[in-house]
Design a binder for these strands. Structure first.
Lengths: 235, 235
DNA sequence: CTGTATTTGTACGTATGTATG
DNA sequence: ACATACATACGTACAAATACA
């Protein structure tokens, strides 16, 4: 692992364990240089990463300060699937059914979007989230088969992310999300209890591994009235 | 402005204008060094920023490639005000008009939400964003007068965040945001060109100063078809 | 398949600027 | 005025991934 990542990990671990408590000031860059036997640029790169990930805040001329932990954890929620976050927010349970589970070759639009070879083998999964007796969310997942081998319908019914991280031991790095309203499609009408709604809120999700390779593309399609998203942003 | 930011701006502008089209490869770091008369580290810092903001994707050993970038997009990495997001999007006509500017006492629902004394003095501002000749976004801002003194209609027409940070020197710390669809209100019908849309996407925003005091509550109401939100979630 | 050139990634060292106390 | 701490910028060297002859 790169040196600046090692420094990042060690400092992050100290913050999580409480050895570096919230509100406290980190040692200066010069001190960290000596402590880790690294150049200042390398130390700075680790600190930049910590700030980007919400662990610390740098103040020109003052120092680097540890942020409160609750905000960090909130950030962690961000990468988990929306339906799960949504469920925990409402304190109710959502029932998931796997509506479709296929192995396909990547269609051209997806291959281009994910920067894959045409014809790459993929899993395509449709899952419906039922809340209070109504189907309100449709998740369509595409996974690269090579990167996420051994996916089954049983896993899909449980938690795919848990499988990826704990069973396969893959490290998820980041996800790009986009939220927008779209016209209802024929598939939406089949899978969801739409009533008279003509639009759905669509969350597209491109998820990347630590090495920067994209292993997933997902569309999460929500009925308008059952959609809610919240987060905390920092300067 | 820092040199790496200038390089960032110039490259970003070329991508927005199409001089550097999507999918194309940027000149190598060495070429950019000579073109901008900068060191490689400086060029790299600009490229890192471009990647962080979703303009490009760097590929080890291959090069740096321009990503697709469609319609109106909210780049929500951190707290960003409207004019900051769209300042860069010149060439597409976006105009802001202040539709209403009042000094009021905090209504009960707001006092409770912001944890204020009943009757706290506030500014209430309505601003309409016109995109390609249509009014598509309505912002309703509430500011605590004591914390943001001297706000005027002229400031509101320009950039309130710029005023708060640079003129008043206040430190914004974090913002809680929520996004949901809501029924169109009478006010929406007055201010926006809604066509037949019966719903708007509403982003509510509670913004806090560094000491933890809330100074702002804002509702940003978007016409369905002109709403897009994107961000990057990291582990 | 093999070496070579190209391109980005990491790391180090140094110098100077800017904000804070 | 002075010291401290972070920000920017330059230069150099080597490693790692990729492309190509």
């Amino acid at each position: 692992m790169a040196k600046y990542r090692q420094i990042y990990e060690q400092l992050a671990e100290k913050m999580r364990s409480g050895a570096l408590p919230a509100e406290s000031k980190l040692p200066s860059e010069t001190e960290l240089m000596h402590a880790f036997e690294a150049s200042r640029g390398t130390v700075r790169k680790a600190l930049d990463l910590l700030q980007e990930h919400g662990y610390v805040r740098k103040h020109h001329g003052k120092g680097v300060f540890v942020l409160r932990r609750d905000q960090i954890e909130f950030q962690f929620n961000g990468i988990v699937s929306f339906s799960e976050v949504y469920a925990s927010m409402l304190g109710r349970s959502i029932q998931t059914t796997v509506a479709s589970f296929e192995e396909i070759e990547a269609p051209p639009w997806l291959a281009e979007r994910m920067n894959l070879e045409p014809g790459t083998e993929m899993y395509r999964i449709e899952r419906v989230r039922n809340f209070d007796g109504e189907n309100v969310i449709l998740d369509v997942n595409y996974f690269v088969k090579d990167l996420v081998p051994g996916l089954t319908e049983a896993v899909a019914a449980h938690s795919i992310y848990h499988y990826i991280e704990h069973e396969l031991g893959l490290q998820i790095s980041y996800a790009k999300r986009k939220i927008a309203a779209e016209d209802v499609t024929a598939l939406d009408r089949v899978r969801l209890d739409l009533h008279d709604y003509e639009y759905v809120i669509v969350i597209t999700n491109d998820t990347f591994l630590y090495e920067g390779r994209q292993f997933e593309y997902t569309e999460s399609r929500h009925r308008l009235d059952k959609f809610q998203f919240s987060d905390v942003a920092r300067r």
